[in-house]
């Protein structure tokens, strides 16, 4: 799941302040699940922006902003979307970018896209995958150091963790601590002896 968070309302308002007519598009997949782009949030955004004086002429929730496939589909979904001067997308970055392919007006993001993660219940888990295109997660017991260690270290931890917590974020467990515990639990500490080569940093 793509983890996103809402931009502060004032930042959104500032983007749209001088727009004549605004349309809002939400997304019923990841963004809806995280309450940053589903039906209730789009409705709330319509009313908040209208109250703040922005001319919002409609709001709709796409099945998945990232799989909207054509202008026609978008027009069908939002018949008057071509009459606007700006579209505000309440989805992740890829959803927003996809919508921008089909409308020839300014497209603004209502959210910041934070990471590729998971949600269990209401608990968001960040940075489970870095989308490196060379998955070797089995070498690390299913815990990806490229995604979870801020230094992306492949051969073990830095010297910066304290009491099992990350140097960069003391609220977070050191990824290498988790990897060690997990591999110990599944009897695969042998995997840690291997020297791991540097990854190709090609963006695929």
């Amino acid at each position: 799941m793509i983890i996103s968070s809402s931009k502060p309302f004032n930042e959104i308002l500032e983007m749209l302040m001088d727009k004549d007519a605004v349309y809002i598009v939400g997304c019923s997949v990841c963004a809806a699940k995280q309450h940053v782009g589903g039906e209730p949030e789009v409705a709330e955004m319509v009313s908040l922006l209208s109250d703040a004086g922005v001319n919002v002429i409609g709001g709709v929730v796409a099945k998945a902003a990232c799989s909207v496939r054509s202008c026609e589909y978008l027009r069908e979904l939002a018949p008057n979307i071509e009459d606007v001067t700006a579209v505000l997308v309440m989805a992740c970055g890829s959803g927003t970018s996809n919508i921008a392919r089909f409308v020839d007006v300014d497209v603004y993001p209502a959210n910041n896209t934070d990471s590729l993660g998971a949600m269990t219940g209401d608990k968001v888990i960040h940075h489970l995958c870095a989308m490196c295109g060379q998955c070797s997660i089995a070498d690390f017991g299913g815990i990806c150091p490229t995604a979870q260690c801020p230094k992306e270290l492949l051969n073990g931890p830095c010297g910066g963790s304290m009491d099992g917590k990350c140097e960069v974020d003391p609220e977070k467990d050191c990824a290498w601590e988790l990897i060690y515990e997990r591999l110990e639990r599944i009897g695969r500490l042998d995997l840690l002896e291997e020297v791991r080569d540097a990854k190709d940093r090609l963006v695929k």
């Binding site: 230094k151 992306e152 270290l153 492949l154 051969n155 020297v195 540097a198 940093r201």
Partner: peptide, 10 residues
């Protein structure tokens, strides 16, 4: 930008 293209072992 924190680079860390290689780690210390690499």
């Amino acid at each position: 930008k924190a680079v860390y293209d290689l780690d210390s072992v690499q």
